[in-house]
Simulated assay, not measured.
Amino acid sequence: MDWQGITTAMQIYKIFRAPEWADLRAKGETPGAPVDVADGFVHFSTIEQAPETAAKHFADEDGLMLVAIEVDRLGDDLKWEESRGGALFPHLYRNLRLSDVAWAQPLPLVGGAHQFPAGLA
């Protein structure tokens, strides 16, 4: 299912390890993490999905960055596709560009859980 244009204010999120974030900042674009490259698209999460993504794929990892992207910046290259548990996840079928990023914040690990910025999760 493709939900293009559902809202221009909607943001999706990508969790980067420090070297991946540094690489995006240095090069201006990235095909994503190794899992993204292997799958052929950049994986994102909604804010409701992001805590589970952090726990499942980044357990006990510190030094992460939470990067927000506004859906309307991605155009037709963003697709909403069914994934775990039948939920729709946003997938980007092109490199992520630094110019796509709305903001980025550290995602610290505190007491074994990632602490999302206030007001998000």
Rank of each mutant, 00 (worst) to 15 (best):
M1H: 12
M1E: 05
Q4E: 15
I6M: 14
I6V: 12
I6F: 14
I6D: 10
A9L: 13
I12N: 09
I12F: 04
Y13M: 05
Y13W: 15
F16M: 14
F16A: 06
R17H: 10
W21Q: 03
A22R: 08
A22K: 05
A22N: 11
D23Q: 14
L24S: 08
K27A: 15
K27P: 00
K27I: 00
K27V: 04
G28I: 11
T30C: 07
A33S: 15
A33Y: 02
V35E: 12
V35Y: 00
D36Q: 03
D39K: 10
G40D: 03
S45R: 00
S45F: 06
T46Y: 02
E48Q: 11
Q49G: 08
P51E: 05
E52I: 03
A55V: 07
A55I: 01
A55P: 06
A55H: 02
K56W: 00
A59M: 05
D60Y: 04
E61Y: 09
D62W: 01
G63H: 09
L66Y: 00
I69P: 03
V71A: 13
V71T: 14
D72C: 10
R73F: 06
L74K: 05
D76A: 15
D76H: 08
K79I: 05
W80L: 09
E81L: 15
S83H: 15
S83Y: 14
R84W: 15
R84T: 13
L88T: 01
F89S: 09
L92Q: 04
R94D: 09
R94K: 09
L96R: 03
L96V: 09
R97E: 08
V101R: 09
A102G: 02
P108M: 11
G111Y: 06
G119K: 02
L120Q: 07
L120F: 12
A121C: 11
